[in-house]
């Protein structure tokens, strides 16, 4: 088990290195040099050269790359070209909003997806199954921006629940009520886009499992139907779902741009958007690294968690 984790960790580091190197190279072949963007269109050649020098961009490519790698390894992600602030503190500032957004939505879509999935698997072709299949289709087909626009309109303007708010992220430790007021709609919007996948995944997995011989055994043992479905069926059906769940959460950090933008949450997604528009290379690199880190860590957790979920793949 220990060797397995070490191997996965080393592999994860390799992935991170490849990701950052790729992004670093891509940004260096960008058509508008960054020093020109900072200096503005009417700056003199001397100013541009000075900025270029200050940013260390006049050094040879490999030297830049090496110092970038060394700094990254020690946790120093450099300074923003635009605000001159430390990239690590910019990210640390923005991360909570995105983390709360993703985690809250994740709970909703996980619980919602599994509940509807199990119900439609055990009552296949019933009205409930058909209704949830319809919702699944709706969730899959609505574009994220529309969903994010639709929910506040529906809940606040049409239904008139004025308790809900839209606005900037507030830490739950400062004002828990306001936090909920502002986060519930973004959670719903994000979860509704993804819950469909989990309903389908759960339904399929459950229907496979419920046809297994050990489910017949569980019934032959005289267990209650609820125990057969949840303790025996869902327990076995859960493995692929949890795997997907880990990967999805990891991948979602850094790709919630639309939801954040529409709801005005100052998270990582917005940060990425602004940085790309302004050509703020160090921040883009920092966020990319962070996103890759989350994906790698999520995969690692899934791999390790898998061996706890399924004793057959347990590595000794």
């Amino acid at each position: 088990m220990f060797r397995f984790i070490i191997r996965r960790l080393l592999f994860g580091i390799l992935v991170l290195w490849l990701v950052t190197t790729t992004v670093f190279c891509l940004l260096h072949i960008s058509p508008t040099p960054v020093e020109k963007m900072i200096a503005g269109p009417r700056a003199s050649a001397a100013t541009v050269a000075l900025i270029r020098h200050n940013l260390g961009l006049d050094r040879p490519f490999l030297v830049q790359y090496w110092s970038f790698l060394k700094d990254t390894f020690t946790g120093d992600l450099g300074y923003s070209y635009v605000t001159q602030a430390k990239v690590s503190s910019i990210i640390a500032d923005r991360l909570p909003a995105t983390l709360w957004l993703v985690l809250g939505a994740a709970v909703l879509w996980f619980v919602g997806g599994i509940t509807t999935g199990v119900l439609s698997a055990t009552k296949a072709r019933s009205l409930l199954d058909r209704t949830s299949t319809g919702f699944v289709l709706l969730g899959l087909s609505i574009p994220p921006f529309l969903m994010a626009l639709l929910l506040p309109f529906l809940f606040i303007h049409e239904i008139g629940i004025t308790w809900f708010q839209t606005g900037q992220y507030v830490s739950p430790f400062e004002d828990p009520t306001l936090f909920l007021q502002r986060m519930i709609l973004p959670w719903l919007a994000l979860a509704f886009l993804i819950v469909a996948t989990y309903t389908r995944l759960t339904r399929g997995s459950m229907m496979d499992v419920l046809g297994e011989d050990y489910i017949r055994t569980a019934r032959a043992k005289g267990l209650s139907e609820r125990r057969v479905i949840y303790r025996h069926g869902l327990r076995a059906a859960l493995t692929p779902i949890v795997t997907q769940f880990g990967v999805d959460i990891g991948a979602l950090i850094g790709s919630t741009i639309v939801t954040e933008k529409v709801f005005g949450l100052q998270g990582i997604g917005q940060l990425v958007y602004n940085s790309i528009v302004k050509g703020d290379t160090p921040v883009i690199l920092g966020v990319t690294l962070l996103t890759a880190l989350f994906v790698v860590v999520a995969n690692l957790i899934v791999d390790i968690g898998y061996s706890f979920l399924d004793p057959r793949v347990r590595v000794d």
């Binding site: 011989d213 019934r219 043992k221 005289g222 139907e225 327990r235 979920l309 004793p311 057959r312």
Partner: peptide
């Protein structure tokens, strides 16, 4: 019928690998 299954009538199936729950 559920109360009969087990204490009154029990069953043994063909393939014991697939008939036992793999995760318990």
């Amino acid at each position: 019928l559920r109360r009969i299954r087990g204490p009154q009538i029990s069953m043994i199936f063909q393939d014991p690998l697939s008939s036992l729950h793999p995760l318990y």
